[in-house]
């Protein structure tokens, strides 16, 4: 059955990784959310830009939280998937708040431990994955493979 998938990643490495997962949700109804003004390419019919921020920028984080919430309410997805960072984490939290499935794939950059956002995501969703076997634990995060 076709589902509404909200795929979220900050511009740069997070987005590059998310786009590599595209075949996993391409048959669904995908909305892409990122932080660059221009969407990555024509495969993504529905694209929203949200404010970029990191965990050191408290005011900007609030703006990111508000932007992503507005997109979430507009799309009302069945599933959220994110490869990080802040905008993705907010969408994961909203999905759980509405009782929806949320998938966090921690960036392959984190070779020794989960990212800070990943550690928060782990508390809210059982679908929290690392791309390094050494980072995985029996209680999660789980290893699902790597994007490269």
């Amino acid at each position: 059955m076709k589902k509404k998938v909200l795929a979220v990643a900050s511009n740069g490495g997070h987005l590059v990784q998310l786009l590599r997962l595209f075949p996993a949700f391409s048959e669904h109804d995908v909305t892409l959310v990122s932080t660059s003004e221009d969407g990555p390419d024509e495969r993504y019919k529905s694209y929203y830009m949200v404010t970029d921020s990191n965990f050191d920028q408290k005011i900007k984080l609030l703006k990111t939280a508000a932007d992503t919430f507005a997109v979430y309410l507009k799309v009302r997805p069945d599933i959220v998937i994110s490869t990080g960072a802040a905008p993705g984490l907010f969408c994961i939290l909203y999905a759980r708040m509405f009782g929806k499935k949320a998938i966090w794939v921690d960036s392959i950059a984190n070779t020794e431990k989960l990212s800070m956002a990943g550690r928060v995501a782990l508390k809210f969703t059982k679908h929290c994955y690392t791309q390094w076997p050494a980072v995985s634990k029996e209680s999660g995060p789980f290893y699902l493979g790597a994007v490269v």
């Binding site: 997962l21 075949p23 996993a24 949700f25 998937i81 499935k101 998938i103 679908h127 790597a146």
Partner: peptide, 14 residues
């Protein structure tokens, strides 16, 4: 794209 195995795993979760 990511290796087939990871895509298949994710498809099942979705």
């Amino acid at each position: 794209y990511a290796p087939e195995q990871m895509i298949t795993n994710l498809k099942q979760i979705i």
